Amino acid sequence: MPQHVYIRPIGLVPGPQSEHGNAIRLAGSMAYASRFAVILRRDGDIVERWLAAPDTMAQVLGALPDEVGADAEAQWANLTLAHPPLQLGPRSVALDQPQVMGILNVTPDSFSDGGRYLDDRAAGREHAAAMVEAGAAIIDVGGESTRPGAKALWEGDEIERVVPAIEDCVAMGAAVSIDTRKAAVMEAALEAGAHLVNDVSGLAHDPRSAEVVAGAGCPVVLMHAPGAAGEDLHEGGDYDLVAFDVFDALRARRDAALDAGIEARNILLDVGIGFGKSLGENLALVNALPLFHALGHPLLFGASRKRMIGALSKEAPADERLGGSIALALEAMRCGVQMVRVHDVAETVQARNVWRGLRDAALTDFSDLPG
């Protein structure tokens, strides 16, 4: 009977002082954790659950079955792993604070802003410049809608959409990612100057994509989608325990990327909010975000303007979901996520800066305590 172990941080604190030093900094982020659930799963079911703190973790891990002991030790090490900056051409993006990725869709049918920048190159260039000026670390250019029910796009048409936008962003000095699941589009985008590949299929859709990324030596975001290998990314979302199932699936895609020659330092992970997941499953994943640091890679989080916000706010349309988008971005930051992908860059950067001010101040909140 196969067994799997998971170390889930469940006690987030403002800083180590509040726990007299008995807390860890999660993945080099501005989040700290003092309590953890060590969970043993067998044949899909949770069979044991222990609570631990940093000073008792060794004892708990030492009592685990031999089959999962090495994995548990690796996960514990990953939770304290500080990630180096992302190298994106001449730009270096530090991951010791949350960074903001701005979305530039050059599509006619994306759920939020489809069509706005497809036929008006100048408007797209102006929007990208405004996002960079507002503090976006990366501009994410996408030419194919991935909303539920969207039709697949021929790669030639996708290339025709994204290359001019990428060239414009590169010309203004921006770091650029290409949001695609097609190897030919990746190649054209990287040739046009893109620095990072953001693949919603986790390199599962196109059999050549991992080879392209490995050959380019560029960073890549591996996102979870249940239908990643087929045409419909949202198909097949059937989970026993969604957080652990997505954890296992991302680990498998990560391992496949490593086997293809992609360097570990170039891999980021994304739980895939909204892709083949119900409202309850999306909420469970947001609550479980700290767990995914145990995989040992920076995390990207994308929930901006998504359907779950409308479902929780009287079916507000996509362009009226700013408040919910900010709330989810801040929760992701609290969980130590290194990058949030958003439509509303200026508002998110402002929220991030205020949040960071609070975090910085929290590091001295307990300086008057004895000992």
Score class of each variant (00 low, 15 high):
Asn78Pro: 03
Gly261Arg: 14
Glu347Gln: 15
Ala174Thr: 08
His224Phe: 08
Ala361Gln: 05
Gln17Lys: 13
Leu322Pro: 12
Ala243Met: 10
Glu331Ile: 11
Leu250Trp: 06
Ile139Cys: 02
Arg116Ala: 14
Glu144Pro: 07
Ala329Gly: 10
Leu95His: 06
Ile166Cys: 07
Ile7Ala: 09
Pro148Thr: 07
Gly276Cys: 09
Val68His: 07
Ala257Cys: 05
Gly102Leu: 02
Arg305Pro: 10
Arg49Glu: 14
Ala129Leu: 05
Val13Asp: 07
Ser112His: 15
Ala228Asn: 01
Pro9Met: 05
Asp255Tyr: 08
Gly227Ile: 09
Asp179Phe: 06
Gly336Asp: 06
Val100Asp: 05
Leu86His: 00
Leu312Asp: 05
Met223Trp: 08
Ser313His: 05
Gly142Ile: 00
Met57His: 02
Arg352Asp: 03
Glu187Ile: 12
Gly336Thr: 06
Leu79Arg: 01
Arg161Trp: 05
Ser177Phe: 00
Ala284Lys: 00
Thr56Ile: 00
Ile103Pro: 06
Leu40His: 02
Pro16Tyr: 06
Leu222Lys: 02
Glu281His: 15
Gly149Cys: 13
Gly302Arg: 02
Ile7Met: 13
Asp240Val: 14
Gly28Phe: 04
Asn287Ala: 14
Ser92Tyr: 09
Gly371Pro: 01
Gly28Glu: 12
Glu158Lys: 03
Ser34Asn: 15
Gly296Ala: 07
Lys306Cys: 03
Ala123Leu: 08
Glu155Tyr: 08
Ser278Phe: 09
Asp120Phe: 03
Ala70Gly: 09
His234Thr: 05
Ser313Tyr: 02
Val93Gly: 06
Arg265Ser: 14
Arg208Ser: 13
Arg116Pro: 09
Lys182Arg: 12
Ala134Tyr: 06
Ile103Met: 04
Leu358Phe: 11
Leu363Gly: 12
Trp76His: 06
Thr107Leu: 11
Gly44Lys: 08
Leu12Gly: 13
Asp96Gln: 10
Arg121His: 13
Leu363Pro: 07
Tyr32Leu: 02
Ser18Gly: 12
Ala27Leu: 01
Ile262Arg: 04
Asn282Cys: 09
Ala130Asn: 06
Leu12Met: 13
Gln338Lys: 10
Arg341Met: 04
Val106His: 11
Val213Tyr: 02
Gln97Ile: 10
Ala174Ser: 06
Ala288Ser: 14
His20Val: 07
Ile178Ala: 13
Val342Gly: 00
Ala130Met: 10
Ala249Glu: 08
Arg41Phe: 00
Val271Leu: 09
Met308Trp: 03
Arg147Pro: 07
Ser112Asp: 14
Asp365Val: 12
Val68Lys: 03
Arg341Cys: 01
Thr364Trp: 14
Leu279Trp: 07
Arg321Asn: 05
Ala175Tyr: 08
Ala152Asp: 13
Thr146Val: 12
Val100Gly: 04
Ala252Lys: 10
Val342Lys: 00
His205Glu: 04
Gly237Arg: 02
Ala33Trp: 01
Gln75Ile: 12
Glu211Pro: 04
Tyr239Asn: 03
Glu281Val: 08
Ala23Arg: 03
Leu79Val: 11
Trp355Cys: 07
Ile262Pro: 00
Glu126Thr: 14
Phe247Trp: 13
Pro298Ile: 00
Ala74Thr: 15
Gly336Phe: 03
Val337Thr: 11
Val345Glu: 04
Leu299Glu: 08
